[in-house]
């Protein structure tokens, strides 16, 4: 199908939003804002997916990212010495190399994207979500199930890595808060 002017407008607006919020992730001092600017970037990409006829995937992306970015914000607040960014700070290394790499990859990819000719076979009208469901539980079931098994393995591995008592103990004990870890001088 031919995209109408509204699609053009929406894709451009959300595209600018996704890029600007992605840029602000590394420009803000507040860790909470960094995490939620990243979420705004994901929500903008999710909205672009919805405009591109992939409603289900766009909404699933937004749904997933809300939880993940809150976890990210909590980890930022846990691990950074100045999470609220009340004092300005920069925590960067190899800054010039990074800028060159970032700009370089943008220029190369954008050049390829603009110059190269891609086949023009647009999505036919119809329910893309139904097609996705049939693909997931039909031809590509093995891929889908492998993703599920990988996620299960990751859950077990992440808990074993992160939990203080490792893989041992009752679930209820694991949900109790640990004692406050204060380093005191040895007075003995």
């Amino acid at each position: 199908m031919n995209p109408g002017p509204l699609s053009y407008f929406l894709v451009s607006a959300f595209g600018v939003g996704a890029v600007v919020s992605g840029w602000l992730v590394f420009r803000t001092d507040s860790m909470l804002r960094a995490a939620y600017w990243l979420m705004v970037s994901f929500v903008a990409v999710g909205a672009m997916l919805i405009v591109l006829d992939a409603q289900f995937l766009g909404l699933i992306l937004i749904l997933m990212m809300s939880g993940e970015m809150t976890i990210m914000a909590i980890f930022m607040i846990l691990f950074m010495m100045n999470p609220a960014g009340l004092n300005p700070m920069t925590m960067v290394h190899q800054h010039r190399t990074s800028i060159i790499a970032g700009v370089g990859s943008f220029v190369v990819l954008a050049f390829v994207g603009v110059v190269a000719e891609f086949p023009d076979r647009p999505v036919p009208a119809g329910d893309a979500t139904v097609a996705l469901g049939e693909e997931l539980l039909g031809r590509s079931m093995l891929v889908f199930e492998s993703a599920g098994v990988a996620l299960l393995a990751v859950m077990i591995g992440a808990i074993a890595l992160a939990a203080k008592q490792g893989r041992f103990g009752d679930a209820y004990d694991g949900s109790q808060e640990p004692s406050i870890d204060v380093e005191t001088e040895d007075r003995s």
């Binding site: 595209g15 600018v16 996704a18 890029v19 992605g22 840029w23 992730v25 590394f26 970037s41 990409v45 672009m48 970032g102 700009v103 370089g104 990859s105 943008f106 190369v108 990819l109 954008a110 994207g113």
Partner: peptide, 8 residues
């Protein structure tokens, strides 16, 4: 847009 997000 994709290239820009990737570059960032």
């Amino acid at each position: 847009v994709g290239a820009a997000i990737f570059g960032i």
